[in-house]
């Protein structure tokens, strides 16, 4: 399992904005996916629907966690610099113009892993404590 760890300096900037604590977040893909690492900028583009490809041009389908989950709020603040309200504002520009649809949302880490283990183009994020052999970590948010 390739695991490239990135420390994000912005984490401390947003620590005040997030009123919850969370474990490290692992960005995961199918073990057979050729992608071994990704930048926060490319992650942001994929989860904001700006691109539907990994950096190697292969298809990328993001899987999101449910609205209101602390893990989701932390992920978006770290990766896209948007809190839940800003994210809703961003997607409302696309939903109400028919120009974009937010990623599919699932209930928990187990469901993220379950979907990714069956689809080589899927990408999601889970608590690092729940990482197992069914997925491959390509980015870690501390």
């Amino acid at each position: 399992m390739t695991n490239k760890t990135h420390s994000l300096a912005i984490a401390s900037l947003f620590a005040v904005a997030t009123s919850f604590s969370f474990a490290d977040i692992a960005v995961v893909v199918h073990p057979d996916n050729a992608v071994t690492t990704i930048t926060d900028s490319d992650l942001s583009r994929i989860f904001l629907g700006k691109t539907d490809s990994f950096p190697d041009k292969s298809k990328a389908t993001p899987i999101d966690q449910k609205e209101g989950s602390p893990l989701r709020d932390a992920f978006y603040i770290m990766v896209t610099k948007k809190d839940a309200a800003q994210l809703n504002s961003y997607w409302s520009r696309l939903i109400f113009t028919g120009k974009g649809t937010p990623p599919k949302m699932v209930r928990n880490d187990r469901k993220v892993k379950s979907l990714i283990s069956k689809n080589t183009d899927h990408i999601g994020y889970i608590d690092t404590a729940n990482v197992d052999d069914s997925v491959k970590v390509i980015f870690t948010i501390k």
Binding site: D52, S89, S92, R93, F96, G98
Partner: peptide, 28 residues
């Protein structure tokens, strides 16, 4: 294709930057 979408019917006119979502106050 995944990158190319065709739409037919009644659609908004992208006259200016915000024209598409002019009335969605939450978006700006």
């Amino acid at each position: 294709t995944p990158a190319l979408t065709f739409r037919a019917g009644r659609v908004r006119i992208p006259l200016f930057l915000l024209s598409d979502y002019l009335e969605v106050g939450y978006a700006y």
